[in-house]
Amino acid sequence: MTDTPEISALRREYVAAGLHRHDMLADPLDQFRGWMHSALEAHPDDATSMTLATADADGWPSARIVLLKRFDSEGFCWFTDFRSEKGVQLEQNPKAELMFYWRGLERQVRVRGRVERLPYNDGETYFHQRPRGSQLSAAASTQSHAVDHRATLEQRVSELDQAYAGEVIPCPETWGGYCLIPHQYEFWQGRENRLHDRFRYTLVDGIWQLERLQP
């Protein structure tokens, strides 16, 4: 294939400082909080972008970028249309993994766990914090479903905007939040010569166990 770019020879060197066991906090949430703070300082526009990986009942995986909207002792939260591909898959198989990649810091974090829907009120509150245009798009679209033309979507948005002119747009019952409740974290720090540092936390009988992984 002569028109295929040659990518096998591309190289990138990692030069960040190392990650040692004594650097790792006892609670992975505290460790994540510190890394997120650094990411927000370095690249605030992209720090909360995360890959959400799900799988359907037959085991077929899918992944996409979503935005982290909250994280605390309850878990990691995001919002979407329940009828979307991810929503359908999470209904079939409520297990998922999140992955954060902060290129400028040469770091990534993986968080694995089970997923639960947030209460409707949580979704409604966040829905009304969004710009009106985002509310209209969410209410007019059946996410991940086929549509004949973009003009169809634009017409739905226009009609909805007129229907609620000067009024609050109601949050659809099909739209809301999810929360991933972690049982495993992995912190990865890029290192020179690909001898990366990796530490994994696993929840065992209510206690976080920490181990170093080979790169």
Results as ranks from 00 to 15, higher is better:
S144A: 11
A138I: 02
L29F: 09
H37A: 15
L118R: 03
Q129S: 15
A140N: 08
A42R: 14
E97N: 06
F82G: 11
F127C: 05
F100G: 01
D148H: 11
T152F: 08
P61C: 05
A39I: 05
R114Y: 08
Q89W: 01
L40E: 10
Q108E: 14
T125G: 04
S38R: 09
W102N: 08
L105C: 10
R150A: 09
F32N: 00
P94S: 11
F79R: 03
L153W: 09
L136T: 13
L136V: 09
W35I: 03
Q31T: 14
D45N: 10
H145W: 06
R64T: 09
G113S: 08
R112P: 01
R150K: 11
D122R: 05
L90I: 07
P119I: 03
M99W: 02
S144P: 13
R112E: 13
S141C: 05
R107D: 05
T125S: 12
K69V: 11
L52H: 00
S73I: 03
N93V: 04
R112S: 15
P28F: 00
R64Q: 10
V111H: 00
F127N: 00
L52F: 02
Q108F: 07
E85K: 14
L118T: 03
R103L: 13
M50L: 14
L136E: 07
V147H: 06
R107T: 08
S38E: 13
F100N: 00
F76M: 08
G104E: 07
R117M: 10
K86S: 08
V111F: 00
A151C: 03
T48H: 12
H43A: 15
